[in-house]
């Protein structure tokens, strides 16, 4: 479903600020795989997400979605196939527009936008039935401006908007990091539900090791622009936070500051 071939990316090349963000990354994801990605700050997680989404174009390498090389597609074209939820709850929705209008825009994602009303009765019913699955009561507030919702509600809405057109790929970039623990838990739960419901191929960046272990069926650990650990299946099921820290230490061969690894 998603294949990254020999992706490398360097920022500010040939300057004192040179930073190798990605180095020969090769990855293949099967349809329906749910991968959690961990690693300290500057490990290349966000760059990886941005290269897949098309916000950044890699120096070399190919991005294949459904066997189609999309590396030269602009971001907006790629987003027909990719759903995204950002870390900032304000980033994924348009605040001055209503809930139903936001959903209508997400609904048009994989279609050609036309000069027909974005919201109609049939779509309203459709949106309502999806909003009900969130159990936040948003289904009764279709005409409320999204700017009036709380961060958690907006993030739940963003998640729904990113997923309900069943994109090939779902990218979650620390999407629970800006929420309080109980809201973060709720969003995590919703994430699990929608990914299961639609069988989405998902990449989720997180700084929370426990979350990385609890969710998904595969785990990447990144460091210095490379995927240094790739664990899946039963092996992942039995993994603990301590294993991860030990593994990181073993591979890098150095004493690491555990706070830094956990908190980033």
């Amino acid at each position: 479903m998603l294949k990254l071939e020999d992706i490398s990316m360097t920022f500010n090349e040939d300057t004192p600020d040179e930073k190798i963000a990605l180095q020969d990354v090769n990855v293949e994801l099967e349809k329906g795989e749910f991968v959690t990605v961990i690693g300290s700050n500057g490990a290349g997680k966000s760059t990886l997400m941005n290269v897949i989404s098309g916000s950044l174009i890699p120096d070399v390498g190919n991005v294949l979605i459904n066997d189609q090389n999309v590396v030269n597609f602009p971001e907006y074209k790629r987003s027909k196939m990719i759903g995204r939820v950002f870390q900032d709850p304000m980033a994924g929705t348009a605040p001055s527009m209503t809930i139903e209008e936001n959903l209508a825009m997400a609904y048009a994602r994989d279609k050609k936008r036309r000069l027909v009303p974005g919201v109609n009765k049939k779509r309203q019913d459709f949106f309502q039935s999806y909003l009900e699955t969130l159990s936040l009561g948003l289904e009764d507030r279709l005409n409320a401006k999204v700017g009036l919702l709380s961060g958690g509600e907006r993030q739940a809405l963003s998640l729904l908007m990113a997923t309900f057109t069943e994109p090939y790929i779902l990218l979650l970039d620390e999407h629970t990091a800006a929420l309080d623990p109980s809201r973060a838990e709720l969003i995590t739960e919703i994430t699990q539900n929608v990914v299961d419901q639609f069988g989405l191929t998902t990449l989720m960046v997180t700084h929370n090791m426990q979350q990385a272990l609890d969710l998904g069926d595969r785990l990447f650990m990144m460091d210095k622009g490379q995927i240094i650990l790739d664990i899946k299946g039963e092996e992942k099921q039995n993994l603990t936070v301590k294993d991860l820290l030990d593994e990181f230490q073993r591979i890098r061969g150095k004493q690491i500051d555990s706070d830094r690894a956990v908190l980033g």
Binding site: E75, S79, P95, M105, A108, V116
Partner: peptide
């Protein structure tokens, strides 16, 4: 009024409201 409620119109309004978001929803801003 009608235009701003069509699929294209909604995308134009979102372009003025949250460009990053509407680009992630496949609109050519």
């Amino acid at each position: 009024d009608f235009f701003l409620k069509t699929e294209v119109g909604l995308a134009i309004r979102a372009t003025g409201d949250n460009q990053k978001m509407i680009r992630s929803l496949s609109a050519n801003t």
